[in-house]
Design a protein around this nucleic acid. Structure first.
Lengths: 353, 353
DNA sequence: CTGAAAGCGCTTACAG
DNA sequence: CTGAAAGCGCTTACAG
């Protein structure tokens, strides 16, 4: 670990003043062509890399973004989604030449102090909030500090904050449309985590779509995600045991969807013959089940990507309050609605010879 | 975003010199009791937080650790495991009052340059390497720079580097032992990702355990993970179609395990009656399948936790080269070996009333 | 025990 | 177009 090269050494080698080297690096202020060439040559020869600490100390900007991880005790974000989200965020930050600083906590208090750390020491220029489930304290803290941040997933009431999200109402409608196109009319809905605005938006979309199709949803068609989580078998038996049971079910998210598939398998109820299933998020686990799960892709990595872009734009363009971005969704149809033949007609399970 | 409070303001308010305030903060050098009290009071009144940039600029230590995320194109690390790993890492870093800086890349080149960024700008004091699959370039770069780092998962040849891992050989043996205890004698093995040392260690453990039990493993009992991934149904049909087929299979990791479960379901082959299954990692998905997957818990979050501790220790204690830490594993028995009754005898699938 | 000074590596007006 | 100087907020010998 030899001493890193400094701007002075580059300056001396290029026979200019440090300030000139600085100008070459930043591209600000005019520098003669010939001089610039000499400086660049010197930088390369010495393998010079500017010290970001010193740079941000004087410039006042750290070129770092804080990423607040969700507390994992809740299931707001499914495990696989966090990785995908992070990938999108990292990709966007890299593109803009920003570093990412992780923050997290195992309790509300820890989360707050972790956030405070970021805000205080001038550590970051902005924050991406992943972990905003039911707890609004982080949000409040950021707002009252006047600190730039973006939230993954819109907030039901706080429309003033920057956020990126799916149009979950439309997504809910599209999920239903897929089922009606397949001939289903009695379609149930299993509500996802109650703390997520997305859950309610999807429900709204579901109701809207049924109404549009001239179908009146019975309230017996509604399932509680919590009940499903606690005892899926019992809940589903009751659900399917009702007089005129639904032939299809829209499920709040993939995790619930997997729980349902599992329970139905145990109950010996064939999917999609007896009950077709559409879920949301299209996380990688949707492909792991038997049958595989039809799911609404919400472009989770793109959500991450756009969130960073939006945040960075707000950093330079000033406020742009209330701007909330929507990322398009698209249905990925799989066996839980289509059956064991893929759309193309290729037999899915190759028979052993 | 009002101007942050500086050490000078605290000093003036406490009627001391900035250097005295600094001493109070760092706890180094003697300060009179009465003076110290005044300074602390002033800090609190002004809500002072030291500027970490300035601090590390002069001290030369950033109190930051770099975390190199795995490129997600490979499946070395399963999606859900990364989150768990990150949680362990974050928890350990928080405890030691270190920040975490994320690095990643979508290609080998990007990864390298992302790493270089960390090393150059004095951004981090050490690096945690998650993404070390087959590509050793990151490793080489770190080694030749003499930069402190720790690797998740031991390296087959480079025993000189700091790493934290499971004892995969022992884990492989324990997986087999679980099966022999259940009465199995013909036990197959499906090799996980070839790029992972863990895969080969587990295979070695498997062979050792069989040998110890006086069983001679046939080479027809061995399955390639790649073949399994490409066409699980066909591979398993052939596997089970052999003259004297295994009654149990040890599978390299959970992802493969899920692929196997899925294929067996499609083939109509009952688990564990016809084929019992043990996998590794006990990632959260092991609990999502039907039947649920018996899996070796490798304490992935603890691996993350210990990795950071080890790295930090090497930072203060100097080299301690070659120290590689082992985290204990333990089998989590589920339906894929035990059947649909839980060990306690509680019926697993509650019958609908 | 405490203060004044120098310096970490860079950037940014200010002169020329 | 280029350089000398001041300063970002802190720490660390050096005196006293």
């Amino acid at each position: 670990m030899r001493r890193p090269v400094t701007i002075r050494q580059v300056a001396r080698r290029a026979r200019v003043a440090p300030s000139t080297v600085s100008r070459v690096i930043s591209g600000k202020g005019r520098v003669g062509e010939e001089t610039k060439r000499r400086v660049i040559k010197a930088m390369e020869e010495l393998n010079y890399h500017p010290n970001s600490l010193a740079r941000s100390l004087v410039s006042g900007a750290s070129r770092k973004l804080g990423v607040m991880l969700p507390r994992m005790t809740g299931q707001w974000y499914q495990d696989t989604m966090i990785t995908e989200l992070l990938r999108g965020i990292a990709s966007s930050a890299r593109k803009a030449d920003y570093d990412l600083l992780l923050a997290s906590g195992e309790s509300g208090i820890e989360e707050l102090s972790s956030l405070d750390r970021l805000l205080q020491g001038k550590r970051v220029d902005g924050v991406v909030l992943l972990g905003a489930g039911e707890d609004d304290r982080l949000l409040d803290r950021l707002t009252e500090a006047g600190f730039p941040f973006v939230r993954i997933g819109r907030h039901e009431f706080r429309t003033d904050i920057l956020s990126v999200d799916t149009d979950n109402r439309a997504a809910g409608q599209d999920a239903v449309r897929h089922l009606t196109e397949l001939g289903h009319e009695k379609i149930g809905f299993a509500i996802g985590p109650r703390g997520l605005t997305a859950s309610w938006d999807r429900l709204e979309g579901y109701e809207l779509a049924l109404k549009k199709s001239g179908i009146v949803p019975a309230k017996e068609w509604l399932l509680e995600g919590d009940a499903l989580t606690l005892s899926a078998n019992r809940t589903l038996s009751l659900f399917l045991g009702q007089p005129n049971p639904p032939t299809a079910l829209v499920v709040g998210d993939d995790r619930l969807g997997i729980a349902v598939i599992r329970a139905l398998a145990e109950l010996g109820i064939p999917v999609p013959e007896k009950l077709a299933l559409v879920a949301f998020n299209n996380s990688s686990m949707a492909d792991w089940t038997t049958p595989s799960l039809t799911s609404m892709d919400i472009g989770i990595d793109q959500i991450g990507f756009e969130a960073v872009e939006l945040l960075l734009r707000s950093l330079t363009d000033g406020e742009l309050q209330g701007r909330s971005l929507t990322v398009p969704h698209r249905l990925v149809a799989r066996e839980s609605t289509l059956g064991t033949r893929r759309p193309g007609g290729i037999p899915f399970s190759a028979k052993p010879r």
